[in-house]
Computed example of a mutant assay.
Amino acid sequence: MASQKKIIVHVGGYDPDALDGVSATLAGQCDALHRMGVAVEIWGFDPRVMDVTEGRTGSGIPLFRLPRCKHPLVAAFMMPPVTRRWIASRAGDIHRLHLHSVFIPSNNLIADLGLPYVVTPNGGWGERVLSGRNRLLKRLWVMLREKKLWSRAQAIQAVSEAEEKELSHLPAMGKVTYISNGVKIPPLDQIKGGRSVWLFLGRLAIEHKGLDRLITSYARCRQRAGSLPGLVLVGPDFRDGKAELERLIAEHSLQEHVEIRGPVVGGDKDRLFGEASLFLHTSRWEGMPLSILEAMSRSLPCLLTEGTNMVPLIRKFECGFPAGNSEDEIVEAMLLAKDGDLSALGQRARQCIEDNFSWDSVAKKLTTLYGLEA
Results as ranks from 00 to 15, higher is better:
Glu166Ile: 06
Glu166Asp: 15
Leu167Glu: 04
Ser168Phe: 04
His169Pro: 00
His169Leu: 14
His169Cys: 09
Leu170Asn: 12
Leu170Glu: 10
Leu170Lys: 14
Gly174Leu: 10
Lys175Gln: 06
Val176Phe: 00
Ile179Cys: 05
Ile179His: 06
Ile179Glu: 10
Ser180Leu: 01
Gly182Asp: 09
Val183Glu: 00
Lys184Ser: 11
Ile185Tyr: 06
Pro186Cys: 12
Pro186Glu: 08
Pro187Leu: 07
Gln190Phe: 04
Lys192Ile: 14
Gly193Val: 15
Gly194Phe: 00
Arg195Trp: 07
Arg195Met: 09
Arg195Asn: 14
Ser196Gln: 08
Val197His: 07
Trp198Ala: 15
Leu199Glu: 11
Leu199Lys: 02
Phe200Arg: 02
Phe200Thr: 05
Leu201Met: 06
Gly202Leu: 01
Gly202Phe: 01
Leu204Asp: 03
Leu204Met: 13
Ala205Met: 06
Glu207Trp: 02
Glu207Ser: 10
Gly210Gln: 08
Leu211Cys: 08
Leu211Val: 13
Asp212Tyr: 07
Arg213Thr: 09
Leu214Thr: 10
Leu214Val: 11
Ser217His: 11
Ser217Lys: 12
Ser217Pro: 14
Cys221Lys: 07
Gly226Met: 08
Ser227Val: 10
Leu228Asn: 03
Leu228Cys: 06
Pro229Arg: 00
Gly230Leu: 07
Leu231Tyr: 12
Val232His: 01
Val234Lys: 01
Gly235Arg: 00
Gly235Met: 00
Gly235Ser: 06
Pro236Thr: 07
Asp237Gln: 04
Asp237Lys: 04
Asp237Thr: 02
Arg239Asn: 14
Arg239Glu: 12
Asp240Tyr: 12
Asp240Glu: 04
Glu244Asp: 14
Glu244Ile: 00
Glu244Ala: 13
Glu246Trp: 00
Arg247Ser: 03
Arg247Glu: 00
Leu248Phe: 06
Ser253Lys: 15
Ser253Cys: 11
Glu256Thr: 14
Glu256Asn: 15
His257Asp: 15
His257Trp: 09
His257Cys: 12
Val258Cys: 09
Val258Ala: 07
Val258Gly: 04
Ile260His: 02
Ile260Asp: 05
Arg261Glu: 05
Pro263Phe: 04
Val264Arg: 09
Gly267Arg: 14
Gly267Thr: 10
Asp268Tyr: 07
Asp268His: 13
Lys269Gly: 05
Asp270Gln: 15
Arg271Ser: 04
Arg271Glu: 08
Leu272Gln: 07
Phe273Ile: 09
Phe273Cys: 09
Gly274Asp: 08
Glu275Ile: 10
Leu278Pro: 01
Leu278Ala: 12
Leu278Met: 05
Leu278Cys: 12
Phe279Asp: 11
Phe279Asn: 07
His281Phe: 06
His281Gly: 00
His281Gln: 07
Thr282Gln: 03
Ser283Trp: 01
Arg284Asn: 10
Glu286Leu: 03
Glu286Met: 04
Gly287Ile: 05
Met288Trp: 03
Met288Arg: 09
Leu290Trp: 01
Ser291Thr: 15
Ser291Tyr: 00
Ser291Cys: 09
